[in-house]
């Protein structure tokens, strides 16, 4: 399990989950954008076979597009809890699909419940994770992934 494997599996997972669940065409961006703004991060722990995490940094305009598409409702008409639940379910699906993509369908793994996190400082080993940027038909978002071997 190399950093390259992990990155490839994440790129494939994001592209397929976004196209099948959120109906947005995503493309991996090799170069980090100069200005990347976000207000909220979504976090999920990977427990086994090795520990790590996946973090999604989604800008507000993209969060709106995602939630409005999935629920087919106006963002303003939705409760904060519904919005969080929607985004966390997507992260949950990303995490499951990522582990299957990385380890194959024959491997066992365990992940935690996803959570909304407002403070990056609480996350350990953030500097060790890989930053992967995507374009979602315009808006840019980032996924950080770490899997300790």
């Amino acid at each position: 399990m190399t950093e390259e494997n992990i990155k490839e599996a994440m790129i494939k997972t994001i592209e397929s989950v976004f196209s099948d669940m959120v109906f947005i065409d995503t493309l991996h961006i090799e170069k980090s954008p100069e200005n990347f703004d976000y207000t909220q991060i979504l976090y999920i722990d990977i427990i086994s076979p090795s520990n790590g995490y996946i973090i999604a940094y989604l800008p507000l305009d993209l969060r709106k597009t995602i939630v409005e598409t999935i629920h087919s409702t106006d963002w303003d008409e939705m409760h904060a809890s519904e919005i969080d639940d929607c985004l966390l379910e997507i992260l949950n699906v990303i995490a499951g699909n990522f582990m299957t993509e990385l380890l194959g369908r024959g491997a066992k793994y365990n992940i935690s419940f996803p959570a909304v996190n407002y403070d990056e400082e609480d996350i350990e080993q953030l500097d060790k994770s890989q930053e992967i940027y995507f374009s979602a038909e315009g808006p840019i978002f980032r996924i950080n992934v770490l899997l300790n071997s």
Binding site: D20, M21, N97, G106, Y109
Partner: peptide
């Protein structure tokens, strides 16, 4: 219907009498 898509788990669930295992995202 789960995002935990795994052959071993699927086989076990089917042995226990589950009719089908479908991976998320559902369509």
């Amino acid at each position: 219907v789960s995002s935990l898509d795994n052959e071993i788990l699927e086989a076990r669930l089917k042995r226990e009498g589950v009719l089908a295992v479908i991976g998320k995202p559902l369509s």
